[in-house]
Design a protein around this nucleic acid. Structure first.
Lengths: 327, 327
DNA sequence: CTGTTAGCGCGTTCAG
DNA sequence: CTGAACGCGCTAACAG
């Protein structure tokens, strides 16, 4: 384990000087700066981040908080894209990250959660797809000591920005692709009390007012299985099935095929698997990568002392073709 | 930020004693133990892991090394399952983890890589799907200071265990489901020089000897697009298309459908998307969760001073139905 | 059984 | 412009 001392010895300066060089202080002669950097390279020195963050109370990492579980299919694609976006942006900016998984937090008490992120030397947290049941994280948002960028939850505070597409508008637009006046429409909503679920529901309700059709709402919990089974039971009574997620749309479509009937269906999210199911279903394409990317920029804003804001990301209404997914 | 001192003050003992209680030392009176724990709870104290690992040179985290990119579709599902397995096992065992992404390492020099993991206070690394191009990680494996569990690469050393299914046998068996003597067989292999690609290729070659058929091998690079386009061109000359990955099988199947011909196809991996493509394609089902889970146990073995070993995980030959993926 | 002491590796004053 | 000295929060060795 080569420490800053080794570098100092090799460069014939003191440890303090090495530190200054590495931190980019200005008042260092070019001469010694060069020597130090050379020693660093020759020795392959990497600062010990534990010691570093312990010493300088400067916590600078961004914690990336991810829900990882097997309850909902295809969540992994969305998470990976969020993650890629955020990681790429952090790399561009030279910011260190820590990945934190929800199950890790579930073990902790309310208050200890703060300390936990603290001990990770994070001062900011990006929350991908905040869950309304996640008391732990919701409590954390109250702590002014951290900055947050939250995806898919309409929460704005001095230290909290939120990032998402206009769910209401998106649901309105995608549904309007398939619904005609007078249609009987079945709507599979997401999780009861979920943030996005509510907004999407408002979207379809708005469309109902504007276009006048019969609307039945079923809580689909984003579950493909529920959509599948409910569709098997009910599809023959409806002209359209509007789904608050692609996976539910896939379940509904599958059921219709099995029933041998045609019902207009729309989805929501724009995930790749839509390109494989052999049906052309209009959906809302969210650019998850960009959302993740943008979250980092929000954190930067907050760190700079700006107040939290709501960031609305663009989306597209489209069908996902096989061609588009195989690249 | 409440530190060990605060706890000590509240419990009216010294910081050292608190530390001992928390580390589960035996020679502590029940009385003070209780007091300390109470103070810990009341204050919501969480040890600062940076300080902890800095002090005790005891590095105990397991670093989980993941390739994250968008080059190959559906890698995300596999990675997530690996990850879930490893994380679950680590939680069961009370081991802390750090997640490290390949792109982070790509910035580093050879030697600094070691220091990097060091500074993360990791003494072990789990590598999911080691890439033969990844010089950085391959070099690291030479370092006896770390323990490694490597998935999908046949590397065994004192400090390196590897975990995977019997690729050779799996490819043999799944292909034998569709190939009959005298068939003309097209084989889409994985990445040239890839570890698993080679083993799978051996499997099909072995089958060729045993069953006697005409075999053409094309480097498919695990790419759905390549399989798709090559199949469009060549399918009518073959009876079977054996693919070294599910995504290639899907590409091949799609092409056959477009050509309006039937060719027997097999896949490899057992990922969920196979349940959505509407074709019943035999494949090798790997239990990625269990593989991730098992990797942690291998690390434990190595930490206990045992030598690295090859761990062969079970697999199944099966078709993935829609029913099985919607649960 | 418990308190005291001495660092872990680094960043940051403060002198010089 | 540079070096010495202190302390971040914690653990370990040593006293008592």
């Amino acid at each position: 384990m080569i420490s800053i001392k080794d570098v100092a010895a090799r460069a014939k300066v003191s440890a303090g000087t090495v530190s200054k060089v590495l931190k980019g202080y200005t008042n260092i002669s070019e001469e010694t700066k060069k020597n130090v950097m050379q020693a660093v390279n020759e020795l392959g020195y990497v600062p010990n981040s534990a010691a570093s963050t312990l010493s300088s109370k400067g916590k600078k990492k961004i914690a990336i908080y991810i829900y990882i579980n097997d309850k909902f299919q295809q969540i992994d694609e969305i998470n990976m894209l969020y993650l890629m976006g955020a990681l790429d942006r952090c790399r561009e900016l030279g910011i260190e990250t820590v990945t934190v998984y929800n199950e890790t937090l579930e073990r902790l008490q309310h208050d200890t959660c703060l300390s936990y992120f603290n001990s990770l030397s994070a001062d900011s947290v990006i929350v991908f797809g905040l869950n309304k049941d996640d008391r732990m994280m919701l409590d954390m948002l109250e702590s002014p000591r951290f900055n947050f960028a939250v995806v898919d939850a309409p929460i704005v505070k001095d230290n909290v920005s939120c990032v998402y597409i206009d769910q209401r508008k998106a649901q309105y637009e995608v549904a309007s692709q398939i619904i005609e006046t007078g249609d009987k429409v079945l709507y599979f909503s997401g999780k009861k009390n979920g943030y996005v679920s509510q907004m999407r529901l408002e979207g379809i309700r708005q469309l109902q007012k504007d276009r006048n059709f019969e609307l039945t709402v079923i809580e689909g919990e984003f579950s493909e299985a529920i959509a599948y089974h409910q569709t098997l039971k009910l599809a023959n009574q409806y002209d359209c099935i509007v789904c608050a997620s692609d996976m539910m749309a896939i379940g509904a479509k599958k059921a219709c095929k099995e029933l041998g009937i045609f019902v207009k269906i729309s989805g929501f999210d724009g995930i790749r698997v839509m390109g494989y199911v052999g049906s052309s279903i209009p959906t809302v394409r969210q650019n998850f990568y960009n959302i993740g990317y943008r979250c980092v920029d929000e954190i930067i804003r907050l760190r700079d002392g700006e107040k939290g804001q709501k960031v609305i990301m663009p989306f597209e209404i489209d069908r996902i073709s096989y061609r588009s997914v195989i690249k």
